[in-house]
Computed example of a mutant assay.
Amino acid sequence: MACVKDITFNDFSRLLDEKKNFIIELWAEWCHPCKIMAPYLEEACQKLNACYFYKINVDENPEIVDLLNVNSIPRIIMFVDGQRQSELKGFHRLESIIDQVSKIPCDTI
Rank of each mutant, 00 (worst) to 15 (best):
42 E>G: 04
60 E>A: 11
56 I>P: 06
47 K>T: 06
52 Y>P: 01
36 I>A: 09
65 V>P: 01
59 D>G: 06
50 A>N: 14
39 P>N: 01
61 N>M: 04
51 C>F: 13
59 D>C: 02
68 L>W: 01
35 K>N: 15
63 E>S: 13
34 C>D: 07
67 L>P: 00
51 C>D: 05
40 Y>T: 03
38 A>F: 04
42 E>A: 01
55 K>P: 01
67 L>A: 05
46 Q>G: 13
59 D>Y: 04
50 A>C: 13
50 A>D: 14
63 E>A: 14
69 N>R: 04
64 I>V: 15
48 L>E: 08
33 P>M: 12
56 I>C: 07
49 N>T: 08
48 L>R: 11
56 I>F: 11
43 E>Y: 07
47 K>A: 08
66 D>C: 02
44 A>E: 00
45 C>L: 08
55 K>S: 05
65 V>R: 12
57 N>R: 07
28 A>N: 09
45 C>W: 05
65 V>I: 15
63 E>N: 14
67 L>H: 07
53 F>S: 02
36 I>L: 14
33 P>Q: 12
62 P>W: 15
53 F>R: 06
63 E>G: 02
39 P>F: 05
59 D>N: 09
35 K>Y: 13
56 I>H: 09
33 P>A: 12
44 A>Y: 10
28 A>V: 03
61 N>P: 06
52 Y>E: 14
44 A>N: 05
46 Q>M: 11
45 C>P: 02
34 C>V: 04
31 C>A: 02
47 K>N: 12
28 A>I: 08
45 C>Q: 05
64 I>D: 02
28 A>W: 08
35 K>W: 14
47 K>R: 14
52 Y>R: 11
37 M>E: 03
34 C>K: 13
34 C>I: 06
55 K>N: 04
40 Y>I: 03
68 L>K: 00
43 E>V: 07
64 I>F: 08
58 V>T: 12
55 K>Q: 09
44 A>W: 07
36 I>W: 10
67 L>D: 00
48 L>M: 13
55 K>W: 06
